[in-house]
Design a protein around this nucleic acid. Sequence first.
RNA 1: UCCGGCGUAGCUCAACCGGUAGAGCGGGUGGCUGUUAACCACUAGGUUGGGGGUUCGAGUCCCUCCGCCGGAGCCA
Length: 432
Amino acid sequence: MSWVYIENLKKYINENVEIKGWLYNKRSSGKIHFLQIRDGTGFVQGVLEKSKVDEEIFENAKRLRLESSIIVQGKVREDPRAPSGVEIEVSNLKIVQVPIEDYPIGKKEHGIDFLMDHRHLWLRSKKQFHILRIRHEIVKAIREFYDSRGFVLIDTPIFTGAIGESAGNLFQVNYFDYGKAYLAQTGQLYLEAACMAFGKVYNFGPTFRAEKSKTRRHLTEFWMNEAEVAYYEHEDNMKLQEDLVSYVIQKTLEHAENHLKALDRDISKLEKIEPPFPRISYDDAVKLLQRKGFNIKWGDDIGGDEETAISQEFDKPVIVFNYPRHIKAFYMQPDPQRPEVVLCDDMLAPEGYGEIIGASQRIHDYDLLVERIKENNLPLESYDWYLDLRKFGSVPHSGFGMGLERVVAWICGLRHIREAIPFARTLYRLHP
RNA sequence: UCCGGCGUAGCUCAACCGGUAGAGCGGGUGGCUGUUAACCACUAGGUUGGGGGUUCGAGUCCCUCCGCCGGAGCCA
């Protein structure tokens, strides 16, 4: 009898198969047991009838507790009463292990603190199954997008010296006798180096921010995809972002629609996501917010509530571009027509999910970059190799970073980003 | 770091103006051949987060500490 995964059961109608999995719930009456089985690929009900199996097997099923690991054998049967359309007529049941304690996660609702404390077990539940499968498809789509366009994957380091946008929110670690190292909060500067070697490059990996943020949009460790392209200017950059996000949505719909439906996600809202995306300048965004009653003036940064208000005007992600120079990072290229603004953009996801991409064209002129570093009171010597890039064949180039968990939360329709990553690291949570 | 909220059975929550602690789920026992968070009956289960105070009396009011949640700032 062959071992079959639940996701493939429909190919084995009326055949005898073996399923290796776990019991996630059980309902029974005196002469029939309904075993709810999962195996990591899906969920199926096994029906065990007293009149059709050995007495011993039926009695063994009574001993099963939630999350018992079991191997069942039986015939695959189409049944309109089953949510997935098939169930297993169990003929044999092997118990691998009966849990030695009661399974802590019950069928009724739990509080978030309890669930996060049991994240290692919570992963087994249905909602998490669907979310993390969707995350997997999103990651695949991101990689496919770049690979199909001739980008080269350049993995940027996680241990770095003190280089990045600002030092205040870096995690420090001891690095042998060299002193302190810092966990990367961006790989951008390294990608800028790499794009001068490979033209089109991207990275994808964990990023660390020691910001004491306590919101539904923040993690201290999150996955970020960054891209950097030599000879790309602001407009090319925005186009690339639209194409990426649209591709990811379309591929996720293609490969994970069943999981999205299982989460009750409104698919129609995702189906609309295709280029071009609405674009609004920072200037117009401020005017829009003023009309909506926000107390904001030109030069102020756009906060979380304001972002939500802007994104509510559109049913696609909206690109807000050309922010004032003084509220953005030192390396951003000034607008040649208006030096008080820089050639940058943020992409805000719809439905209040906030910023998913931060992007800019980078300064390629050596003297201008030195001036900006000094202006921001940053140590010139830390940027020695970064400045080198402007000495040798410097060209205009642009790039961006996309936060994976925010994209996952948006696509899945999650209220909080912590469920968009297998083991979330937040301000007060390092365990499990 | 700041502002707000919460902490009662293993879990999710009740408990009026301060008056002697209650339900569902889960556990145990029994019943039930189509259940979909199955159902029905019985049953066990509590130092009300820790410490201090007010009071004849505190889950309830006050102080303090701890833990977590939400938001702000900052960002993806």
